[in-house]
Design a protein around this nucleic acid. Structure first.
Lengths: 207, 207, 207, 207
DNA sequence: TATGAATGAGTCTTCATTCAT
DNA sequence: GATGAATGAAGACTCATTCAT
């Protein structure tokens, strides 16, 4: 096969992948037909099966590959963010909320999966270990912040879990307008407050 | 119709209703068949259509009626809970988290709907106005707490929205075991912290 | 049973009968539900089965009983109409077309049956012998008219069959407005012309 | 798509089309199942939906396409038949009755539709304008014949309507045996008589 | 006798997947 | 590799009929 052939194949796979992500996130797994995806991708629906064995595998692939993309932002907290613990958490929350506000397509998919975890065991396992890895990654920061007295003295897994809950919940609370900056900014602060009391940088009040 | 007849009808409708709630919450709308529900309810599938016009109407009814049941706990905050603002919010969160931990079936259904809001316009509207009404109901308490300086000085709708986000998110974060008391207790505290800094009642530390 | 009881039963049967005739003629056999008929008759659909064993028997009864009603007008031509042959035929056609223009409900039912003769063997036999009996009844008149030279010299069954065809066809040709008198009058003359040349009573022309 | 492929598709569509025409005409719309048609056509029932969107569209298509086929025989009277007016009408009737005697399958379908015109609005409109167009096409011939005194001096639309009625009625009057030539010949003469007095070519009598 | 709840056979329709071209 | 025709499993829904009340 000529290199250009491989390149062409890669591009076509990508077209199908992106079409699937879009349509699945909009209509959910069951109301999406393979024909829908093929049409969006501009290929015949037979071609979809050339690149992905079944509809179900396509769905899982679409989610898992995008999860890989965002992993670095969650699994190397200390390598990615610097400063004192509150600065690290603030930067982390900022990054995460920004990612989620931009990746609403992916987040919708995650919601769908979370609503049917037993239905997708492979995805469940992946998401579960993702959360575990995140806890492990953020733990040292929490530890230090707790020692310094700027974070609540609760167990790390609880803090991390409720943070993940809140991130997830954000998308659910009817926020589909990524341009609603005021809301997203406010949600960032609310997320930070899960770790420790937080006052607005510009606030006159202190807590 | 004789009273005993009406009573029997009511009971059978209820059997179907509860079967539907169970199966829908477990398998989602599309993977649930009307036959599944009928079997769980112990009736012929034709009977399901005697009580509910279509599968879709059954789904909506199951959600809307249960939403009505929990509404009082959200829409009359001041009539239901007493004390100073922090005491009211604490009691409210306690009640809400308890309800949600017990109504995990219903919450799953809500997750499903939230993941496909455009698919269920009637449900969307209902949930949307539910949230608005809650904000209105909780607003006076927040106002007072903010004056007293125990709550964050953010706009009420933001505080309330992030609270609802967090409640929603809780169910998503893999908590299906209602007996996991430690986790639920911790989540309550996290929820309270969205409104203002909070320390454990038994904590030695003060914030 | 008190006479009033029998009377009441007869009335109720009649209500169902008339409702069935109306709805069947409008929607046809298959798109009519027993519930439709019951609703039109103002009874519960269970009651329909008290008076008629099955939906199919109700359909047949509705047609056969109305066929009996119009039979006298077809089966005793010489006893009913008087005059010379052309006068008899003219009066007969007038009577028949008038009946059909008024009994459009019944005629619709007959069309339905004629379109599916093999489906309703009992009705077929009844209609077939009705036509035979009509031919026999009209035959002496045709005989005499042919001798006098005012009717075409064709076999009686052909003349009679094409007359019946034309009567049937009339309803088919989009005539649902019984008040369209000009049309019905014209169709009468056309029907007479199947037996022999005919000029308008007021026509200046002679044929 | 290769030409052979298109050819194969056309043939298969045709097989389904003819099977549908046969079964629909025999059993009517409602008693015909798509499975019946598929079986008659020798394909899987899923294949029927590859070629026709719904059962209803298949029904309409079957009727409309066959209507198109017979249209030329009705809508270009003067271009198709030659001679004096009576010769034209005689040839036309001969052609029409022959078509109808051979197309009894199609005629049955038309009866079904005429018995439920409101049920099939698209078909109604088509049939209605077909009749109008026929009247327009035959009108000049009637005009000339009337001037010559060989046709009845009635309005063209009445003559044409009763002619159509009679053609329709023919099929209704229990004539399913296309080989019953004597009957069909007789009916042709009856049809001609709707336009003007007519004697058998071989008749000694004159009218 | 009247009612209407219960039943389940029967049908259209959708759509993932296969496979010949 | 790409296409799309063919397949048939699966499911929602209708409705005549039964029968307990």
């Amino acid at each position: 096969m000529k290199p250009s052939m491989e390149e062409k194949k890669r591009l076509k796979r990508d077209r199908i992948f992106r079409a699937a992500s879009k349509i699945f996130s909009e209509k959910g797994y069951f109301e999406t037909t393979v024909a829908d995806i093929a049409k969006e991708a501009g290929v015949s629906f037979g071609t979809v099966f050339t690149y992905f064995e079944t509809k179900e595998m396509l769905y899982e692939t679409v989610i898992l590959e995008q999860l890989e993309e965002i992993k670095p932002h969650f699994l190397d907290i200390q390598g990615t963010f610097t400063g004192d613990p509150m600065e690290i958490i603030t930067a982390m929350v900022d990054r995460h909320v920004t990612i989620f506000s931009e990746k609403s397509e992916f987040l919708r998919l995650v919601q769908q999966v979370l609503a049917r975890l037993d239905r997708y065991p492979a995805l469940f396992e992946e998401l579960d270990s993702f959360v575990s890895d995140f806890i492990e990654s953020v733990s040292p920061v929490l530890e230090e912040g707790q020692k310094m007295g700027v974070f609540y003295p609760d167990p790390h897994d609880l803090l991390a879990h409720s943070y993940m809950s809140t991130l997830n919940g954000m998308r659910l609370t009817y926020i589909d307008d990524p341009s609603n900056l005021r809301l997203w900014e406010a949600l960032k602060i609310q997320a930070i407050r899960l770790f420790g009391p937080y006052h607005h940088p510009d606030g006159a009040r202190k807590w």
